[in-house]
Design a protein around this nucleic acid. Sequence first.
DNA 1: GGTGTTTTGGTTTTT
DNA 2: CCAAAACACC
Length: 842
Amino acid sequence: MARKYSLEKKAEADDSLLERLNPAQREAASHFEGPLLILAGAGSGKTRVMTHRIAWLISNKGVHPEEILAMTFTNKACHEMRERVDGLLEDQRASERVTISTFHSLCARLLRLHARKINLSADFVIYDDADQTSLIRRVMEDNDRGSERSEARRLRGFIEKMKNDALTPHQAHEQAFDGATEQDVDFYEAYQTQLRASNCVDFGDLILGVLEIFRLHPDLASSYSRQWRFVMVDEFQDTNAAQYELLKHLTCEHTNLAVVGDDDQAIYRWRGATVANILGFEEGFPTAKVVKLEQNYRSSQVILDAANDVIQLNWRRREKKLWTERQGGEPITYFTASDDREEAQFVAQRIFEMARDGLEYSSFAVFYRTNAQGRAFEEQLRFHGSPYQVVGGVSFYAREEVKDVLAYLKIALNPTNEVDLLRVINKPTRGVGKSTIDKLRVAGVFGQVEGLWGAVGYAVNDEPNTGPAPMQHGWLPGMGPGGALIDPALADVAGLKGRSLKGIREFHDLVVFVQDSLRASSSLAQTVQGLLERTRFFEWLLTSDPERAEDRQQNVAELVNAIAEFEKEWFPDPGERTKEPRAQRILRAFLDRSALIQSTDNLDERGAVTLMTVHGSKGLEFDTVFLVGMEEEIFPSIRDNDPDELDEERRLAYVAITRAERKLFITNAQRRRVYGTIRNTAPSRFVLDIEPERLKVDPRSSSRFVDFARPTYSNQRERWQKDLVAVGTKEWEFDQSPETRKGSIGKALDQLRARNSDDEFSQLTPWEDLPAAAAPENVHDVSHWGVDAGDPDDLTGKTVTHAKFGIGKVKAVSGKGDEAKLTIRFPTVGEKKIVRRFVRIL
DNA sequence: GGTGTTTTGGTTTTT
DNA sequence: CCAAAACACC
């Protein structure tokens, strides 16, 4: 077969393509056939290597673009890779023909193509987590397994685990599991049966479904394997057993599998990922070549050293040491606040100052362990007027109102999808309550109709006015019009009347209306618009929850927008003639995309501080990073009850630290509100693991908890054992007595105090203005950073800020000094009398 | 069947 | 403390 692409580029292509890579990168990028493991440390240019290898295979080895498959975990990584391959290849069309995809969207495509091989129809709908949970709860009810939330959670976890481990219910029955009973496996089977009956799949099924197909039809796997002669995988450390098996199928005809990953950055163990895949890669692929990328192009030496201090204590890892040409660097600033609020104040204050001195807001990021911690930082940033964006949280497509609209569309496509049907059968409220729904469900399960939709059809069919219902699903001959009963299970449904029946009819006709519209209309956006009008959706949002109505209406409007845009981008020709109605085709494509997309994928706002969890930060980099809430029981999390999980927390800390390019702040608080109660905290062991000389303690720190001893381990095994003990007894304690402060951060603070005046911090804030050991009731007071100037008492007309009410103007003053009472006018709440020490004068 | 009120329980979350 | 879900009430 002719290999055109090599002819177009001359020998010089070889050099020009790879010459900008370092030797290790070049070795990896120019690896041709056979398995390859690239151990790529943080910031060592792994995407660069992958994209160059793709380009190199095409232009220097004559590989056809169609023969290359590159897999990522996120859409974002996928887009980035495609863009960069684009940039490297002269032939634009060549790069388009490379398959670059996330695991899940590739599998969704394969599953659609071959759905029938495992008793699915090609219009299956993809359930998200919420849908999955609601199905689980229903199956629990149907099987008398109670309805406790925690039990539902546990079962969901179990099912997810089975799927991550690539086990079908049948296989699960053959294996014994710790903590799982025979009933759990039975439940898994029942759930799976229900899922298939609804013609739906969950996320786990996307992979497992394809595995089932490949297991049943090895020839099919072979043919794909022959098509994709070169397979590449990004973030390989986060693959689970199912994804690993998928890769095995895809490489059954060759062993050209190149994986890139970093075992030190494996942070999705709780999601079923297994580091064993990367640690034991050579066992699965014995002839594998291993290349280590250890030169870091992102961070300063100080930051890398700190990261290394933390990660080197892990027990099982591939030894590597990152290095950089950027020697030295700014020391890491360590700050301990007296409470969580002060911690946030500190961060917001530093950002404010640095932004004032010329740094872009977008060069800052705040990383926390749990989403709940983000609020305090939002508040303080808002108080300073600094723009910020919170990444993560509820995805756009997971919003209630958005899901409601999509539910109607999904039902129109596939009415057997009962989760969505139950979701909106009474939305907007139309008189279909619990008892009516129960009747329908009983009929759907035991009656001679097919499922819920069948029952709905039956209920509305005996009314002469509506005419025959479209019974693609579930109408049986012999079940006469006019309510001629032949089945006792349907009696209750046939007996429905009044408001309930009217409501059911309304719902039924609505779905039919959408179905008709999908067939007739050339525009999906138009169909949705019609649906919204007919249901008076916006009105309903307003009346049902006026508080949040505006927001929610906006979200729905946003959805219509997204659909219209999607339509324009992917289906630009409205007159196009196809077998399937146009709107329906668009809907199918749109649903897949919305199921597999994450809200964080396209939210790359410029000019704002980024707030996110440490998990969210993987793969990103920022000039200045604030790693906050570094306390025992938060980071590492209190939930971690075995050493493997602690190792993962350590990796998580490593990921966070290595995101910083130039400057890293580490902060914590000595007291923190946890679920409403105030708890004392201890500094995270990960902070203590960093060599003290790399940390510069900010002198504004609350001193009490800065004075602690650094635990020393003679080796990794000891560290591991200490973690074990600590975890076992939950009594990890740091000796805080002065005598035992050897090499401690406390000592560093002492030295700092001795040096006092010429310290860089004393220029930021005069030593005198530092909060002296603040009395507890002063903790929420921001005034200790306020600096008085001019006549200290006449404040009339001055602009002030208050932690709660924001910016206001002083109208009148009575009294003197800190206790003076100010009458302040706030635009938000009007006039308030406030004691002076609670406001800050601008 | 629709609505307020009490109770419960609470990581991380690429798809 | 705060949001979702179960519960009680109109």
